[in-house]
Structures are given as C-alpha cells and as structure tokens.
Amino acid sequence: MTTSGEPFVEASADVAAAARIGAGTRVWHQAQVAADVEIGTGCTLGKSCYIGSGSRIGDNVKIGNHADIFGAQIDDDVMISPQAVLTEDRAPRATRPDGQRQGLGDWTSTPVIVRCGATVGAGARVAPGAEIGPYALVGIGAVVLRDVAAHALVLGNPARAVGWVCGCAGTLDGRLQCPRCGRAYELAADLLTEIQPRPVTRCRPPADSAGWVASPRMTQVWLPSAEYYATLPKQIASAGVIFRDAEGRVLLVEPTYGAETWEIPGGGLDEGESPWAGARREIKEELGFDLLPGRLLVVDWVPPQPDGRPALTNNLFGGVLDADQIAGLRLADGELKRSKFAIRAEAADMLRPHMARRVAVCLDVVDTDRTAYLENGFDPLGPGEIS
C-alpha cells in the first residue's frame, strides 16, 4: 500500500536537489540521496543509509540503517536490511592506469536488480549484476555472487540456496507448503510457483522506468487472472439467529412459502457480505429492528444436493430479546406470516429435521464459550462430542 502526502526529509538528511522522491516516503537522520536517484511512494530510508547515483527504487521499499545502495534497481515491496551493501562496479579501482583519479566515465555500472517482495538480510553483500528474484530471501551476512531464484533462501559466503520461502517469508517445508500462512507451491524446472496464487497487482518498476533492465533471466512471477478464479469451486452461505426470550424459549417464524414450515430468522448472504453483517441485515428485514447479533454458536456445512444446489455453510448466531423488543416485532410483509416462541421440545417438532438438529446444538452451547462445527446438522466427531 502506498502512502499519500508529501515526502518527509529529516533535517540532517542530505538529499540532492535533482533526486526525485515519491509521496509519503520518509528519509531519516543523516541519510544521503545522490542526484539522478528516483524513489517511489511509501518508502522508508533509515538512518545513515546511502542511495547512490542512478538508483531506481519502487514503491513501499524499506531500506535499513547504514545500508548502501550503489545504482541498484529495486522493485516494489523490497526490504533492504541494515548495513546491507548493493554494489555496481565489477572492477573497482581508485585511479586510472595513468595514475589519475577515476571519474564518472572511467568505469562501468553493472547494477544489482532486486525483484518484487524480496528481502536482503542485514549485513549481506551483493555483487554487481546479480539479480535477486521475486520474494527471495538473502540471509544475514550472505555474500551473493550470482543470481538468486524467485522464492529461494540463500545463506553463507558465497551464498548458496538452502531452501524456499513463501511470499510471507515463512520457510517452506518438504512438501513446499508454508507453515505460517498455509500457501502451497510447486517446483518445475527450478521455478517455484504458487499452486493457488493470491492476486498480484504491483511488482513493477517505477512509472518512469528509464534505465531499468528487462531481464530475460527472472521475469516469471505468477500473476493470476480472472479466468483462474472462475475455475474455483463455488459455495453459498447463510446466516441465522437463535433468539431467546427471558424464559429461554426460541423465536421461530413461519414463512409465507410452504405449508406449516417453521424457520429461525435468517437467510442467504449477499455477494461479498460477511455472515455477521448478513445476520444483522436479516434481523432488520424480517423482524423490523436493528439489533446486533450475539456470538457465533454453530457453523453447519451442508453438502451439495441432488437437485443441483451447491454446498452451503450455515452460520448461526445467538441473541436475547427483552419484553420491549418482543412487543416491537414487525414481521416482513409478504415474507413471514407469524412468529412464535417455542420451548426446546416444541421447536424440535415444528422445525424440519436438519434445522432442528442445528437449533438443538445451539441450545447446547449457548451458555458456554464454545462454537460448534457440524456437517449437515451432525457433529463429525460423533455422538456426544462438540467440535
């Protein structure tokens, strides 16, 4: 996420007049930014870091204290840790063969490239021309002499690949799964890609990309498309509320459809609506007042039905109505015919079997701190257990 507003430059920082710094970027104490430097939005430049001429830095980049960046090209969301050094001169000398001090035209810049989301660890050194792939992680003190693959974890001197890391920086296990966030990956031809990738909308050079290198070596970042999401399985969800009165009876409502069919207040969720928000909306639409649902009591997953209905997840919340609220009930015209408070045994007879099972479990847990998980109204762990 980028940050709006003017860049902030602390008074002791030395920023060349010709340097271009994006909105919301913060340049802290004694940092030095040379001319011909472009820095994106929302970045942080730590104390005493150095950004050399020719450097191009994307959005949301964090550069740690005392880090030195010599002409590097850095994509969005990159972390350069404290005291890391990114070099650019393959054959550094102080003087020319004639003994004179070298000038700008006496050496060739071969910049380091750091791709989107990568991390360069504290005290690491990166040789000129090395490219660090997307979401790679260079360990503390590593000396990088060659390219680092996307998502690779490299350690040591010289740096060598010892594993793979997730986009969240968690180290993948032997099955290429992340124990921190649960993402899963697959490896083919030394290219690690996410099996169920998350949306990626950035990972790009700055808007003014003059001088940026379009490397043929590491440009394969998985960018999911709308077509991918269209292939994912679809499920629907609903939300309901188990309202009780002062005597512990359960509020039931009779819809206008069906013969002698009783339900609890609730209904299907709208697209993008949370279960809690859906329950609140249904209360207002069906009962006529704006009341916050209580805590979640039961989640009941119902498998796909033979008539083509997809799998359904029911979310049931609790609630208590006082005498004034009960007197103020206004059933939705054209949707509900009547309401009734029923004791547990009576509710079991009035409700359809699957709904009666859900309500019974709600009443079992309502006075505890537990939330039960059911499948089609039954506990998958077996009788006598509450998931």
Score class of each variant (00 low, 15 high):
341 F>P: 04
337 K>N: 15
349 D>K: 11
340 K>F: 12
307 D>I: 04
359 V>Q: 03
325 Q>M: 08
344 R>K: 13
326 I>K: 07
371 T>G: 09
344 R>M: 04
308 G>K: 05
356 A>C: 07
348 A>E: 13
325 Q>Y: 06
360 A>S: 15
322 D>R: 08
307 D>H: 12
355 M>N: 11
335 E>C: 00
331 L>C: 08
311 A>Q: 15
312 L>C: 12
327 A>D: 11
306 P>S: 08
303 P>C: 00
331 L>N: 10
353 P>M: 05
321 L>K: 03
353 P>F: 01
312 L>N: 04
349 D>F: 06
304 P>M: 06
370 R>P: 02
343 I>E: 08
355 M>V: 03
328 G>D: 15
317 F>K: 02
345 A>E: 15
353 P>T: 03
366 V>Q: 15
354 H>Y: 04
315 N>Q: 12
360 A>P: 04
314 N>W: 07
345 A>S: 14
308 G>T: 07
313 T>F: 00
345 A>N: 10
354 H>F: 01
354 H>R: 14
352 R>M: 06
352 R>S: 15
318 G>N: 07
337 K>F: 04
310 P>A: 03
368 T>S: 13
331 L>G: 05
338 R>S: 13
344 R>E: 14
317 F>R: 01
370 R>G: 10
309 R>N: 14
303 P>A: 10
315 N>A: 04
346 E>Y: 06
327 A>Y: 13
361 V>C: 01
339 S>C: 10
345 A>Y: 00
357 R>M: 01
304 P>T: 03
329 L>C: 09
366 V>C: 13
354 H>G: 06
329 L>R: 09
310 P>M: 03
359 V>K: 03
307 D>K: 06
370 R>F: 06
353 P>S: 00
313 T>V: 05
348 A>P: 09
305 Q>E: 15
328 G>K: 10
329 L>M: 13
365 V>P: 03
362 C>N: 05
318 G>H: 09
304 P>R: 10
322 D>E: 12
361 V>N: 01
341 F>G: 12
343 I>T: 10
313 T>W: 02
344 R>T: 03
307 D>Q: 11
303 P>F: 07
324 D>M: 08
351 L>H: 01
312 L>D: 00
355 M>W: 09
325 Q>I: 03
365 V>Q: 06
363 L>D: 12
358 R>A: 03
313 T>P: 01
327 A>I: 01
310 P>Y: 04
357 R>H: 07
326 I>V: 06
346 E>W: 05
344 R>L: 02
326 I>A: 04
360 A>L: 04
315 N>L: 02
311 A>D: 05
303 P>K: 14
319 G>R: 08
337 K>T: 09
362 C>I: 09
360 A>H: 04
332 A>C: 14
360 A>G: 08
303 P>V: 02
332 A>E: 09
349 D>S: 05
370 R>I: 02
308 G>M: 11
320 V>A: 14
316 L>E: 10
347 A>M: 09
352 R>D: 14
336 L>N: 14
328 G>M: 05
309 R>V: 13
316 L>I: 10
311 A>F: 03
362 C>V: 00
347 A>K: 00
363 L>N: 14
361 V>E: 02
342 A>R: 02
331 L>S: 09
302 V>D: 14
355 M>P: 09
350 M>K: 09
317 F>S: 10
